[in-house]
Amino acid sequence: GRLGCTIENILSGCITAWYGNCSAHNRKALQRVVRSAQRITGDKLPALQDTYTTRSHRKAKKIIKDNNHPSHCLFTPLSSRRRGQYKCIKAGTERLKNSFFLKAIRLLNSHH
């Protein structure tokens, strides 16, 4: 119902920015919150991982289509033979490896 949608929006607000760098401990704690919300509302909420994947894919596609987006240049297409594939960004830290951009590129590449 409506309350379930509100709780889902609160739990997944800006998920593309923060979920990639969540620790396993934090993800378990979030899952407990999701289960509690489901018990309270009686609504089934989507798994946060699924929400993250869906929203990351959608956000990446929007950035790719918008030549004026400041992050557009991070999505560099590979050769024309590998249409729909993007060049991976080199990352020296775990934080960057788990960032939205690297995860979005991996996600886009895995869908082709």
Rank of each mutant, 00 (worst) to 15 (best):
P77S: 13
T53W: 06
I63W: 01
T53A: 14
H69I: 04
N67H: 12
N68L: 11
T51I: 14
K59S: 04
S56W: 10
S71Q: 09
T54G: 04
S71P: 02
T53E: 14
P77I: 12
H69Q: 04
K61H: 11
C73D: 04
H57D: 04
I64R: 03
R55P: 00
Q49S: 15
K65R: 12
R58M: 05
P70Q: 05
D50V: 14
H72F: 03
P77K: 10
T53L: 14
Y52V: 00
H72G: 02
T51E: 10
N67F: 08
L74S: 06
L48H: 04
P70L: 10
I63F: 01
T76C: 06
T51C: 14
T76L: 13
H72M: 01
Y52P: 04
P70Y: 08
K59W: 03
T53F: 09
R55G: 02
D66V: 12
T54L: 13
L48Q: 09
F75P: 00
I64M: 12
P70G: 06
T53N: 12
I64E: 12
F75K: 02
H69N: 12
N68I: 00
L48D: 08
A60E: 05
I63L: 01
S56L: 11
K61R: 15
S56P: 14
T53P: 03
I63T: 08
I64G: 11
T76R: 13
F75E: 07
S71C: 08
C73I: 01
T54S: 10
R55W: 04
D66R: 12
S71H: 04
S56C: 14
P70I: 07
P70D: 09
H57Y: 14
K62N: 12
S71R: 09
P77A: 10
T51V: 15
N68Y: 07
H69K: 04
H69L: 03
T76S: 07
T54I: 08
D50M: 09
I63S: 05
T76K: 11
C73N: 05
Y52T: 00
K59C: 10
P77H: 09
K65I: 07
P77C: 10
R55E: 04
S71K: 02
D50T: 15
H57F: 13
T51N: 09
D66M: 11
R55L: 08
P77Q: 07
D50N: 15
L74Q: 00
S56V: 05
K62P: 05
A60V: 06
